[in-house]
């Protein structure tokens, strides 16, 4: 019994790792006041980039780095469209998801079909090293948000950009930083899914994790450790779902597949009714002076 609990927890932690990166990326952007509805699209781009670069350079870390770079650039593009042209963030997010899915599907079919990553990340005490990095990032995010100047500024810009501008800090600069860092984290989450958990790219393999990440951040009331909690809720569901499918019993697998999502929705309903979004979340900012 104890063994099976430990193996369940271990699986849960492993399956939660990609989502944790993505959720932290979403968190960074949302705290600064930008709704990243396009995380799903940025993540799938990370998935493909990760596999392709890992395969060619035979190094998972370089694959992950490349995914960060590419998705980070998409993050910057998202930022530019939002900050310079003030495009509606929700609509833009949907567009990014469509582009991400379409682009990766087309490129994959045309050039990389069936490509195997070939290698993966090293592991330590049974867990892949990126898992430790992800947990380290949760702590780092907490330190940055509550112990560092940049965190005070980021939280402020998500609440009231006018105040931030009034003390001579550039709202755009802060939000561009958030977009680039957020995109890169989301991208690494994608790469870890395709080269750390699995070893190849499949179409739409992100399976809504970009949206689940949004839910996890809301569940976590826009705090790093809260977000970790939200990610683990989904992780429990996902692990249970695999177990139920693998068990081969009478449990209909369609319901097993639904489980992580239903659990996430229930958790949101139960614990996040009073979650207060950053006041300026999704609101375009126009400099007044």
């Amino acid at each position: 019994m104890a063994d099976s609990i430990i193996s369940f927890l271990a699986a849960m932690i492993r399956y939660s790792t990609p989502l944790l990166f993505v959720a932290l990326g979403v968190l960074v952007m949302e705290v600064s006041g930008i709704v990243n509805m396009g995380a799903e699209g940025m993540m799938i781009i990370g998935c493909l980039t990760g596999v392709v670069v890992t395969h060619h350079l035979n190094n998972a870390w370089l694959g992950g780095l490349a995914a960060m770079l590419v998705a980070g650039l998409f993050g910057l593009l998202f930022g530019a469209l939002v900050l310079e042209f003030r495009i509606n963030q929700t609509v833009l997010g949907v567009a990014f998801n469509l582009v991400g899915a379409g682009l990766t599907t087309t490129l994959n079919r045309a050039f990389f079909d069936g490509m195997n990553a070939g290698t993966t990340y090293g592991s330590f005490l049974g867990f892949p090293i990126p898992t430790y990095i992800a947990i380290g990032l949760v702590i780092l995010a907490w330190v940055a948000m509550y112990k560092m100047k940049i965190g005070v500024q980021m939280r402020s810009v998500g609440e009231n950009p006018v105040v931030v501008e009034s003390v001579g800090i550039s709202v755009k600069k802060l939000r561009y930083i958030a977009c680039a860092a957020g995109g890169a984290l989301v991208g690494f989450g994608g790469a870890f899914l395709s080269t750390g958990i699995l070893s190849q790219f499949t179409e739409n393999m992100t399976d809504g994790r970009g949206f689940i990440a949004l839910a996890a951040v809301t569940f976590g009331k826009y705090t790093p450790f809260g977000t970790l909690g939200g990610v683990l809720v989904f992780g429990i569901g996902e692990t249970l779902s695999y177990r139920l499918q693998a068990g081969g019993g009478a449990f209909p697998y369609e319901f097993a597949l639904m489980l992580p999502y239903i659990l996430t929705v229930l958790a949101l309903c139960a614990f996040s009714r009073n979650a207060k979004d950053p006041a300026a979340l999704g609101v375009p900012y126009v400099k007044s002076h």
Binding site: K149, V152, S156, V167, A279
Partner: peptide
């Protein structure tokens, strides 16, 4: 007021200092 309501007093002061 140029204050961030979700921040504490001391955080608001720190924001305005930009050290």
């Amino acid at each position: 007021f140029m204050l961030i309501p979700t921040l504490t007093v001391v955080e608001n002061v720190i924001l305005s200092l930009d050290e």
